[in-house]
Amino acid sequence: MIDANPAENPGERRAAYALVSPAWVAFVVLLAGPSLAVVVLSLTDWQLGAPTMNFIGLGNYEQLFADRVFWKSFTNTFVYCLVVVPGSVFLGLGLALLIEGATFGRAFYRAAYFLPVTSTLIAMAVVWEFLLHPSVGLINVVLEQVGIRGGDWLKNPSRALFTLAGIGIWQSAGLNMILFMAGLKAIPPDLYEAAEIDGAASVWERFRCVTWPMLGPATLFVTVVSGIRSFQVFDTVEVLTKGGPNKATEVLLYTMYTEAFNFFRTGYGAAITVVFLVVVLALTLLQVKAGEKRTHYG
């Protein structure tokens, strides 16, 4: 049916409004309202529980952009993303290609590599803390066997952020693998046959001529999704480093959390949230663009 005549049937319209109203109320009260309130709060000097609230314009932002800790936190978050995104995307792609090309054991590999994605990250962070223990941790013990002194992974300021990034890659590679597998499934098999007839004989050539170009949009999508996810890094920081040592692992959400919920500087925390939101929304718009491209391939 052509759908050019909405609202033509009063009974249908009444029923529709009744059906959507709970969701509409929940949306306004729980999501839209608070998300807009963050922006308003970021323009005030309010502290939770304080009797007065003054509009101070962009005061919080001026303070924020003058704060070395904020810039440290901002840079750390980006460095973290710049390690985790390529790491987990390439690992995910490699795994997807290796596993989909295997003649047996595919379901087993898929499940096993996916396991870290579903496991509770906080619990696994505690396990990692133990694995990374400088003297009795599995990692250093294994390294010792081959004659390497592992040192301290979480208390060394030049290393701590990368250690967290390593855990981030471990946790999200399986997710990217699954997304790439969906992308691979969407490639029509006759393309490979066509490529073969056209002379793409080696595995590498077929990858270069068919898989990679067909997977391009999926790769963009996976990359952006990974970016958004790793930009939200928080759990491992809170459990393993508390932003330390010496702000070496201070990340945006962690700074927001301490300002807003430990020091109750609500307005200031809201300003950090707005910065966070702007970056995530920018990445999301990229994802929407990637999604549009992706649909070309059905």
């Binding site: 529709a16 966070f276 929304l281």
Partner: peptide, 25 residues
């Protein structure tokens, strides 16, 4: 079919973009 359907759906799409931590405060 009802008036406002497209607006509501746009809201849902916008809701999809907002990270869970944004409305926390």
């Amino acid at each position: 079919r009802f008036k406002g359907r497209d607006i509501l759906f746009t809201m849902v799409l916008i809701g999809l973009m907002i990270p869970a931590q944004a409305p926390a405060i």
